[in-house]
Design a protein around this nucleic acid. Structure first.
Length: 770
RNA sequence: GCCCGGGUGGCGAAAUCGGUAGACGCAAGGGACUUAAAAUCCCUUGGGAGGCGACUCCCGUGCAGGUUCGAGUCCUGCCCCGGGCACCA
């Protein structure tokens, strides 16, 4: 569905005179492929090429105009050599770093699990409860680019994207404006981030994330045991279930207090897993009166709830039955000298006061995290780093790339807890490229999203072995003219690609900052009431349909079943309609070839350039030009379903007018070509074409011919339809109104009453108000 | 919970800027062709009421209101479905 929609557009653009490069590639170097291989018990190095061959066969049968000379596979060492090069570019530019991060860990299988492999907190394979484990991981500093990634989204000159995609990215980056505030404690200042400094006076407790470094110093010995037990319990849960919002709040009191700088009161410091170490400072000020989570926490543990925002008819003494989260129309109360200020003004005033008194600063935060690119798995590009006992981590020199993934018979993660690559001793132990001393390789592989973050740069330059992308080729073909993809990639692939391109631009490797200036998202296919997906098992294998109905009928049905950008409902019966249509076109073309004189050397591909007095009946001629107009406009905007409907209407017109002449059918074949390339190619020849239909050019229309001489006008009385009039286009208002009033039905409804008002919309409607 | 889509005949869907709701297609019914069936071709098909009939009238775009000469389209408040994100301070 997605590739056919892209192919229709590419073929259309080619007929419109553009030189079109439509590449295709295969991205199967990651956990999903590895898991699938484990499931089938086949080594991925054997399975993946087999699957690629099958996909390629299917894509070819579907008739995609793909340039197979430039096909890519991210699993190919000739490709991932440059993925590793890309890693090194970022590493050398200081954009890659290592730090400890939590991963899902199955204690039974002794392996790292992806989030989607954790089902209700348990390992999907063995059912053991999953834990968190801290491991050293490689990260890319995408957060450094958060502002730039956000700013370009708003720049219409750089980004022409479907709004649904830009909105998703904006939300994902999640910029928030707030303040970082220091709460002094016995273990030093506790830094807290909040987007609501206006509620500072309502902060009646602090909550630290269980991993927060100040938890230990703030917990006196008698409470240590309880605290450690809680922290252990939290760590024994997986990352997914920890972040579920609607569960009961849990927590432990440290035994210490901190000073609220605004109220001057000492407030208790708690620890709870609803505070995440990864966001903000890993500590929050609990404002139960004005935050739902803090409210639930305060209720559970009997902590004081102080209202600091009051709406109309409320004051500082009004009870707080539920947290008031909104600010519109609220004013500060119980907030010292800031009381009675409107909330928004109070926010600014409190931030100014915090900065003046050096209690805190206004700050911007993003929910976007740095991109963790390491995977403790086998099936992926090895991260090109060597650890040397004397030099530390050293990047593999470019001349030694690629670091080839060794073929390991048993590639499954085992109970050593390290990547399977560590078991391959000859591969694992290497000399340090810097000092020649003993070293060992990084055994993590990189995320598949790194493979796909730059593939578009490789496509035009795929045959170059000595450079990732050739400067001249890149200048000719990039950035990508039109990118058509699914919205499931809105936040991951599309964001990572933008980030990588931005870094490469900054490092001087590419001239542009944004890889996909024009992006259109296609919809998703629904079958049996749910999204068609492999996991739901409601997928359709194209082979059978192509076998039964033909590739063109299948393509056209996919494009006809709904608006491309919204998707649609797949039902087997629907395909018969387009197949019948193609059969009729087939018959029409053959009859036209038989009934009208043979081809003259110059086949008109542009009927509009011929005099209007040509041999076509007026109604057919008009319909033809209307059809060209509509199919052109609709194909350009990816409204393929209505473009196909317009061609069907035209065929219906030709049939009812019994018009079987080449001049009427040829332009139809040209318009059909992007949708049904095989049939169009054949019929073009039947009609006398001596070269490929794709060597011809798209038909043009004559606006004057497309316009009907007569129009039907709706006649309304008080807005209700009472009749229809056929009048010459552009008839004067007085004439139309006069004729409307003469209508029998109109007279009956006007019923002799005076006409108060007459509304006339030229060529459309006349409305008499009585 | 939040953010995006969407709700129109039996079904998939059309409908420029607010201007004739249901294009196009599926399914269904009737007919032609055929020994017969399939295929093909022709006709009918939103619901209701009336008329022998050409036709006529009423209702109808998830629900309730509103704006307007006129609302599928705009506004307010709800309901339902699909997708995504989810304790982000």
């Amino acid at each position: 569905f997605a590739f056919t929609g892209a192919d229709v557009y590419g073929r259309f653009k080619r007929l419109r005179g553009d030189t079109v490069f439509e590449p295709m590639g295969f991205d199967a170097f990651g956990i999903h492929s590895e898991n699938f291989a484990i499931k089938l018990g086949i080594h991925p190095a054997e399975l993946i090429p087999r699957n690629i061959a099958n996909f390629r066969r299917q894509l070819t049968r579907l008739g995609g105009m793909f340039d197979w000379r430039h096909v890519l596979a991210t699993t190919d060492p000739a490709y991932y050599k440059w993925t590793q090069w890309l890693f090194l570019q970022l590493y050398q530019a200081g954009k890659a770093y290592k730090k400890k991060a939590a991963v899902n860990w199955c204690p039974h299988d002794k392996t790292v699990l992806a989030n989607e492999q954790v089902i209700n907190g348990a390992c999907e394979r063995c059912g053991t409860m999953v834990e968190q484990r801290l491991l050293e991981q490689w990260f890319f500093r995408i957060t450094e680019y958060a502002d730039r990634l956000l700013a370009n989204l708003d720049d219409g000159s750089k980004m022409d994207w479907s709004p649904s995609t830009t909105i998703a990215q904006r939300n994902w980056i999640g910029k928030s404006q707030g303040a970082e505030i220091e709460f002094p404690s016995d273990a030093g200042p506790i830094r807290v981030y909040t987007t609501r400094p206006d509620t500072l006076f309502g902060g009646t407790f602090l909550v630290l994330a269980p991993e927060h470094p100040l938890v230990d110093p703030l917990t006196p010995a008698p409470r240590r045991e309880a605290m450690d037990a809680y922290r252990k319990a939290v760590a024994s849960r997986d990352l997914v279930s920890r972040k579920v919002g609607d569960k009961e709040k849990t927590g432990v009191f440290t035994g210490s207090t901190a000073l609220n700088p605004a109220t001057g009161q000492r407030i208790p410091v708690w620890v709870s897993d609803y505070v995440l170490m990864q966001y903000g400072t890993g500590a929050i000020g609990g404002v139960p009166a004005h935050d739902e989570r803090d409210f639930a926490f305060a209720r559970k543990f009997g902590l004081p709830i102080v209202r600091v925002l009051a709406g109309p008819g409320q004051d500082g003494a009004t009870p707080v039955p539920e947290p008031a989260v909104e600010t519109e129309g609220f004013r500060l109360v119980n907030s010292g000298s800031f009381s009675e200020l409107p909330a928004s003004e109070g926010l600014r005033a409190i931030v100014a006061w915090l900065e003046r008194e050096r209690h805190g600063t206004g700050q911007v935060r993003y929910r976007l995290h740095d991109w963790c690119i390491s995977r403790q798995r086998y099936w992926g590009p090895p991260i090109p780093i060597i650890y040397c006992e004397t030099c530390g981590p050293v990047g593999v020199p470019e001349k030694d790339l690629p670091v080839v993934l060794p073929l390991i018979e048993d590639f499954r993660p085992d109970d050593t807890g390290v990547s399977p690559l560590a078991r391959h001793k000859e591969w694992y132990h290497v000399k340090c490229p810097q000092c020649g001393g003993p070293g060992r390789r990084e055994t993590d592989v990189s995320d598949t999203f790194l493979d796909s973050s730059w593939y578009f740069l490789r496509y035009p330059s795929s045959e170059f072995g000595d450079r990732p992308f050739d400067a001249a080729r890149t200048k000719t073909w990039l950035p990508v003219t039109t990118y058509i993809g699914g919205n499931e990639h809105a936040v991951l692939h599309l964001l990572y690609s933008r980030f990588i391109t931005m870094v490469l631009h900054q490092l001087g490797h590419v001239a542009f900052e944004e890889p996909f200036p024009k992006l259109r998202a296609h919809g998703l296919i629904v079958k049996d009431g749910a999204k068609m997906s492999k996991s739901r098992g409601n997928v359709v294998i194209p082979d059978r349909y192509i076998q039964q109905w033909g590739a063109d009928a299948f393509r056209m049905y996919l494009m006809f079943l709904g608006p491309f950008q919204e998707g649609g409902d797949f039902r087997d019966e629907g395909i018969t309609g387009v197949r019948r249509f193609l059969d009729r076109v087939w018959v029409l073309a053959h009859e036209a070839a038989r009934l009208t004189p043979g081809a003259s050397p110059g086949i008109p591909s542009s009927p509009g350039s011929r005099p209007a007095s040509a041999d076509l009946p007026e109604a057919v001629l008009r319909k033809l030009h209307q059809t060209i107009r509509k199919v052109t406009a609709d194909t350009e905007t990816l409204q393929y379903n209505t473009a196909i409907a317009a061609m069907m209407e035209y065929v219906n017109e030709l049939r009812s007018a019994e018009c079987r002449v080449r001049r009427a059918v040829q332009p139809l074949i040209l318009m059909l070509a992007p949708y049904a390339p095989h049939v169009a190619e054949e019929l073009w020849t039947v009609l006398g074409g001596s070269r490929s239909v794709f060597a011809e050019s798209w038909p043009t229309y004559d606006a004057a011919l497309a316009t009907a001489g007569e129009v039907e006008i709706a006649v309304q009385v008080n807005g209700k339809l009472r009749g229809r009039l056929t009048v010459p286009r552009g008839s004067p208002e007085a004439e139309v109104v006069r004729r409307a009033q003469a209508e029998e039905a109109v007279r009956r409804f006007v019923d002799g009453k005076p006409i108060k008002k007459t509304i006339y919309v030229a060529d459309r409607v006349v409305n008499l108000v009585v």
